[in-house]
Design a protein around this nucleic acid. Structure first.
Lengths: 343, 343
DNA sequence: AATTAGCACTCAATACAATAGAGTGCTAAC
DNA sequence: GTTAGCACTCTATTGTATTGAGTGCTAATT
């Protein structure tokens, strides 16, 4: 069947009305509010076609139509006009960003809050992931006779620290020598590469500190590789309760449960590729998101992707606005991070 | 009016039944389930007295009775028997703790999760607050020509790092000298004391690095003093939706809103004094908690209070169990932290 | 051939009344 | 002091109309 221009307009009307009011849209409404020149009957015929084509659905016989996932998809890909958020808003975002200079984690948390506030949906944000970068240097600070703080500076300038518990005392001096040696061996390596390092080689150079080095390296690997310490922040979880689709307490509960599963959110964010991404309802791989839409985007430092953010909302999301906001936000975040961490 | 023993038993029955079923308790129920030797009529008379005395209330004429805040308070103070959680559970807690050795923040987060899982309420936990301790040493690591990482080790062994952006380059060597000097001046001082330090004094010793020192110290003060970076973790927020008192979506929403206000939670946790603490409904200072009960407790390192945890639930909370769990948890947390951070 | 008006039909939501059930307070008996 | 009995109150539930939005189909119109 052919997708005439009028069908397109009607689909758009249905989607945009449904986005705003969360209620099935009937032919009369469309005739009155959107296509004033066309009678309800005509619209009904077109709607019937649209339903056959799978773009809209009827919750029950005597209700209006609601968009299907396929309908939203078409809308996002072809119909929706780019929502360019206005300069005032853009400026607002920029200013807010500069305000929160300081610690990177705080910046990221701030982004999460901003995202949820501006979209009125739930936001999730992953802190910069430095596994994707490579090690630049490792430094040690002796805290006391049983504990050493290891500080890792990476490619992207992001750092992380790990407390190492040692079985034997070491002087700050020894630590400096160890770190010099480690820097020799490790610097430039991707963090994944560290795993495959030949420890023996290193132990030969160990100047009698074999045990310490072994412990340090293995703890390093452990921490870096296996403990996913990358923080995931969320904000605006309660926004979801403002939506009529979550007035059912059970749905609300299951949504909240999802939002408390850090692992899950991490997985979602970690799989994000490309720039801005939209997954609608059933397009989501994860069962738990089959009734939501997700807008995700990545952010970068020096053009290297190191993290991602996302917006979670109902399938009747204000795609155009949400996409624009997410886009602007990650662009700014990337810029700021890059400038903060410039080497 | 006198509080006879039977009245006490009836009050206990009402409270415990209401805790379990969240529904007004009638005289017949009590007669059948709790005081099998006594007839409903007698119990009704006693209940009438208890109501006059303000320990119980009637939602409406033909409903059973529910405990008032005053009733819960009496229950917690006088009636409730200490719930000694059994050895298995205690052991479980201990084991779980040891599992999550490693980073302190992760440990704390873990405590939050454990608390909510074991109580089935919402937990809030404040990360160790090192403002309450004093500085032990300050170390610097040069990251690149414009950035230095300052690591602060405190009394309790807890550390924190701050990235300082400098206007001029410094060598690692210079940094070591600066840190030696700073350690001289600062070590042993309470973090609040740092503010009142005589900068001039320091600048005289500055060996030509006045500008850097000035910047370092002022940044230090700024970060330490004014930015409340103490994390607040929460867990089990969605548990609240399992409770019938939150089946009203509006109540649920307002609860969630509270739980997203980090500042508020921080304030609550920050005001906790003493060991274990119970505030019931209207006893809470904050308007937002007038319909909840809060069980809070502090944890320590080397007998120095450095943080607190809390459980938020409905007034019909399982006080006895919750108190026992919170108590056990903070005790273990204190022990583990103290042993981890032993100097 | 496309559009529109008209009409019968469907179905959810709402309102309303009737009923059942839980619980109380009071009185009188034990 | 305790208990049984009874009238009374109030909520929750269930069943029954009623309303109204919306559709699909058919026939008339352009």
């Amino acid at each position: 069947m052919d997708m005439g221009n009028r069908k397109r307009l009607i689909l758009q009307a249905i989607i945009e009305d449904y986005i705003n009011h969360a209620e099935p849209v009937g032919s009369r409404t469309i005739s009155k509010k959107y296509l004033t020149g066309t009678s309800p009957a005509t619209i009904r015929n077109e709607m019937s076609d649209l339903e056959d084509m799978g773009y809209i659905e009827q919750p029950h016989t005597s209700a209006g139509r609601v968009p299907s996932d396929k309908g939203y998809r078409l809308y996002v890909d072809k119909i929706m006009k780019q929502n360019t958020i206005d300069e005032a808003q853009r400026e607002m975002i920029r200013r807010k960003f500069v305000d929160s200079l300081g610690e990177i984690d705080r910046l990221v948390k701030h982004v999460s809050k901003l995202l949820s506030q501006m979209t009125q949906y739930t936001s999730i944000v992953m802190a910069p992931q430095f596994r994707r970068t490579s090690v630049k240097q490792v430094q040690f600070i002796r805290i006391d006779k049983a504990a050493v703080l290891a500080v890792i500076v990476t490619d992207a300038g992001i750092l992380k620290n790990i407390i190492l518990r040692l079985r034997q005392d070491v002087t700050q001096d020894t630590l400096i020598r160890i770190s010099n040696m480690l820097n020799d061996k490790l610097s430039g390596l991707g963090i994944e590469d560290i795993e495959s390092i030949d420890l023996h080689d290193m132990l030969n150079d160990s100047m009698g500190h074999g045990e310490i080095i072994e412990q340090v390296v293995s703890e390093l690997i452990q921490t870096l590789l296996y403990s996913d310490t990358t923080e995931v922040y969320r904000d605006g979880v309660s926004n979801i309760l403002n939506l009529p689709e979550y007035s059912d307490i059970n749905k609300a509960r299951s949504f909240l449960n999802i939002m408390e599963e850090r692992e899950l959110l991490f997985k979602v964010l970690n799989d994000v590729r490309g720039d801005v991404n939209v997954s609608i309802g059933s397009e989501n791989k994860l069962e738990q998101f089959k009734e939501c839409s997700l807008i995700t985007a990545t952010y970068k430092v020096n053009d290297k992707t190191i993290g991602s953010v996302g917006i979670i909302g109902p399938t009747r999301m204000e795609y155009s606005k949400a996409i624009a906001i997410v886009e602007c936000m990650t662009k700014n975040l990337s810029e700021i991070l890059t400038s903060i961490l410039r080497r």
